[in-house]
Design a binder for these strands. Structure first.
Lengths: 213, 213
DNA sequence: GAGTAAAAGTATACCCGGTGCAGAAATCGC
DNA sequence: GCGATTTCTGCACCGGGTATACTTTTACTC
């Protein structure tokens, strides 16, 4: 068995296969019966793997779900780093979010595909998953703060403050959208309002809460 | 056994005593050995109560610690509601936070009493407790948003956005202070810097991130 | 291509947080 | 005192997660 083909050896390929097998078995069962209603033992059995092996791939039950979102954790930070020269970080983030709305990126909360909605519902119904998402937010804040420090040489504290505000606002927008779709509003119908709300929110971020009396 | 004394009957008094007995046994053991190193069974034994009874008083292990902070969850909201007429909500929150700094209120992160510091360390060392604190933040956001809606008739979305920003910033300030004290800086020495940072942070909230390039 | 070190997987037993249940014990109201 | 109600308890159980000791599989080398 020469390595004529791609780089990864048999071992790596097998590992990858088991990993996706476990993940897919998990998602399937969780979507069907709910996160709390399915035990990891059942997932392991469905994936034809021992419980111990499952935990070798995913450190906790929650990771079976959230590992798919790991990439988004640093997304805002990447957007800030990759922004065109002489562009304010906030502008870059806003444009990125608006683009997400146009593309119905699930992370904006504006995607009403049944799969996405069911996933959303599943997460909201499981407190431990919600808590895990919060940790995600924290990670995004740290990554963004670092990006701000490094690309806009913002002072330490200012970077942290700006980061937590930006992440919090973006999260709130997404939640608001998702909430409305959960109530049955179609994404295409919500789109205009979502854009207006986003623009309002980013304007608030840019100009501050000073107007509030 | 007449009820010559105060109102609460024997039953209520006993319940209250058991409750504090459990809580204090828990805090003592947790501070001494660490949250994860002590099992609820040990806490129950120390409080001379069955495990089942412990869970009748505190729904989860984490609650043994966090129930003491329950009051702070709605603190910001109360401050906003109780603000003098014609005062901006943000002003009220800022003044309250500055007062907290002066009084070394533990919630500002500027209290270096050994007890407080050990508690802080204990929480940070236990992921499940950190997660629980996040839920606290969420509760504070909701309460504040409602207060803004009701006392400044801020539109729904604006209230939510302002609330998440304010809570996030205040939390970040407290964390920054606590972090520095954890490094050994005395509270009295940190005080001036903490005030300056807080004023900077609230100015940022008021005037927005527009200056950021 | 056989042999072997290293890696991956398994079975089993265990710890801990949390719950259901059935009955004992304490408190209350009269 | 006495019955009704509440509280407490012991025990068995579930599910997530880990330790240990063992077998299987892959990779490397001659």
């Amino acid at each position: 068995m020469d390595a004529v083909d791609g780089k990864p050896g048999l071992r790596e390929r097998k590992k990858q296969r088991t990993r996706t097998a476990i993940s897919e078995a998990a998602i399937t069962l969780f979507l069907e019966h709910g996160f709390n209603q399915v035990s990891v033992a059942q997932v392991a059995e469905a994936a034809e793997v021992s419980k111990r092996t499952l935990f070798a791939y995913f450190p906790t039950k929650e990771d079976l779900v959230v590992h798919r979102l790991a990439d988004h954790e640093t997304e805002i930070a990447r957007v800030v780093r990759a922004r065109p020269p002489r562009t304010a970080p906030l502008t870059a983030v806003r444009e990125h979010f608006l683009q997400g709305l146009r593309e119905r990126d699930p992370i904006t909360g504006l995607n009403d595909h049944p799969q996405v909605r069911r996933l959303h519902r599943m997460i909201l119904d499981a407190p431990s998953l919600v808590a895990r998402m919060e940790r995600f937010k924290t990670g995004a804040e740290h990554a963004l703060a670092q990006a701000l420090r490094e690309t806009a040489d913002t002072p330490e504290l200012t970077a942290r403050l700006a980061a937590v505000q930006i992440v919090a606002v973006q999260w709130a927008l997404a939640q608001d959208n998702a909430e409305r779709l959960a109530y049955g509003e179609p994404a295409d119908e919500r789109y205009a309002g979502a854009v207006k709300d986003a623009e309002h929110a980013f304007a608030l971020l840019e100009n501050g809460l000073g107007r509030l009396t």
